[in-house]
Amino acid sequence: MINFRILRHMWLFLAVAEEKHFGRAAKRLGMTQPPLTQQIQVLESSLKIQLFDRSRKGVQLTPAGQAILPAVKKFAGQVERLDLAIREAIAGQTGIITVGAISTAMLDVLPAYLEKMKKAVPELTISVKEIDSAEAIPLLQSGDIDLAFARLTGALGNDIASLPLASDNLVVALPHDHFLAGKNSVALDALSNEKWVMFARHVSPVFYDSITAACHNRGFSPRIIHEVRSVASQIAFVSCGQGIALVPSKLERLSPANIVTLPLDKNIKVITTAVAWSSARNNPAVDMFIEVIKQP
């Protein structure tokens, strides 16, 4: 039997886990600290485990707290989605879809498609959440999202359909005082001894593999010093003098004044965004969204 009292306390646990401070969590929840502390103690007593280590340095999750945090986050997201669907239904809305998108897609291709979709179906509610490319397929398969805008290519698994949307040539992002900064273009093998800032493979396997394969074809393996989750993070690390990075040319506009971006002497073209969806699920709103995307 579901213990709804424990479920209610999970929101309190999540707030403290994310804020790492009882006072800030209480403020976020619109309550005072003593009742929050008491309710967390009640939750720990009910579960018969300690969730937090409390010290003068702050609040940290125990191993048990860390173990349940991902499931609590997922549950909270599903409940929020259910709540939104109920409220929209009461308001007379005809449907809701959840779009998962990588940050670069949200900056580049997604806004135009959202605008077209809202014009085509103004009564449809579209919820957008940020994801990593590696999360796209599992989230589609679980039904947590209806559409994914991510770096995807090739066979994506049974019942997953996809459509490439955008590709781009990579450029080299260098500190402005780098010895190569004055060049018109850069050969890839000229970067063999550099410190690289790269997407972590688990975040964007396609992006990672395409770059490492190009390097191997030029006779070297990139010296990856920092692994990050976004192009913005790549550029930020380069700006701090932590290495060089290959980034899509369309996003070089994100570069601050102390970064120089140069083309490669031989282009490396990558798919920067594809849209994917589950063909096993019958969702007319998703079908309509794909038709909107296909329109010229």
Rank of each mutant, 00 (worst) to 15 (best):
V59W: 00
V99Y: 02
V128R: 08
R87Y: 02
V99H: 06
P111I: 14
P70A: 08
D146K: 01
L147I: 14
T94I: 10
A71G: 13
D159C: 08
A67R: 11
T62N: 09
I96V: 12
L110E: 10
A64M: 12
Q66K: 15
S133Y: 02
Q141L: 03
T94G: 13
A105K: 07
F75K: 08
Q78V: 01
E88W: 06
P111M: 09
L139N: 04
Q93M: 07
L69R: 11
A71V: 13
S127P: 02
G95H: 04
A155L: 09
G157N: 09
I102D: 04
L152H: 08
I102T: 15
K73A: 07
A134W: 01
D168F: 07
V99Q: 01
E80P: 06
A67E: 11
T62D: 07
G154N: 09
I131P: 01
S103E: 10
M117N: 04
E130H: 08
D108N: 12
A85R: 05
V109E: 05
R151E: 08
A161H: 03
S103T: 12
R87H: 13
F149I: 12
L61H: 06
I137F: 01
A112S: 15
E135Q: 15
R81Q: 12
D108E: 10
T153Q: 12
T94Y: 00
A155W: 09
S162L: 07
V121M: 04
P122A: 03
D146F: 02
V99P: 00
N158A: 15
D108V: 14
D132S: 15
K116L: 10
P138K: 07
A101Q: 02
Q141F: 00
I68Y: 00
D83I: 14
E115M: 11
A105E: 02
L140M: 04
P122C: 08
L139I: 05
A71D: 14
